[in-house]
Amino acid sequence: MMKRLVLLAGIFCLLATSVWAIEANELFNTMRTKVLSVKDYTADVKMKIDVTYMRIPQLKGTLYFKSPDKMRLERHGGLSIFPKKNINLTLSNLIPTGQVAVLDLGPTTRNGKKLRVLKVIPEDEQGNIVLTKIWIDETNLLAVRTETTTRNDGTVIMDLEFGNYIPFGLPDKVTIFMDVKDYKLPKGVAMDYNDDHINDTKPKDGKGTKGTIQIQYLKYTINTGLKDDIFKGKKGEE
């Protein structure tokens, strides 16, 4: 009798795990499909880069995005600064594509909202993404936070706040936390001012540090069929 009970319990656990796995897979795939349904967009944005050694004012401009990884910030003659292409600023680039293994880490609460946490491991071992942890709002099928471990660029955390564009899965505000390396320019090239000790920005331990990029999306125009020419650098640009 006891043996049968243990066997039944074992079968139940196995079935439950596989059902959760299917649910987690479905949840991830549905969410990914929603994210990838946006093929391109144009958005008016405000961008704030907060990196220890960078002193950059808030940048306003128009952000162009075309799936899978084309992005350009147009600032009408001004400079635009982006993290390198492999740490793209879009959610679609921080969610693994292709075959993946999805693990359900269970429910959690964040800012008073019930979320489900998934761990997604891509099967492609050559890609830049090693694994991604995603906090999903199941009701609206939205990823509100991702923590992506990359092969070459450290860990990138993305917090997303949604408002007017929930049906498209597009956020109103994105905050990206990323690892940044130290910056040092030879004195011969630098444009230093002797009173620099007042504004000393060097991390005290001399190691790399965290950087934050905050983007506020003011208005989207979605899936208009943007041409590739928009993403090419204009004459005279670096």
Partner: peptide, 21 residues
């Protein structure tokens, strides 16, 4: 060379000043 946002490259800081400023 025209105008634009100005960068100021210090030995331990990268400063960007908007062109209107």
């Amino acid at each position: 060379f025209g105008t634009g946002d100005m960068i100021n490259l210090k030995s331990e800081a990268f400063i960007m000043i908007l062109k209107d400023d």
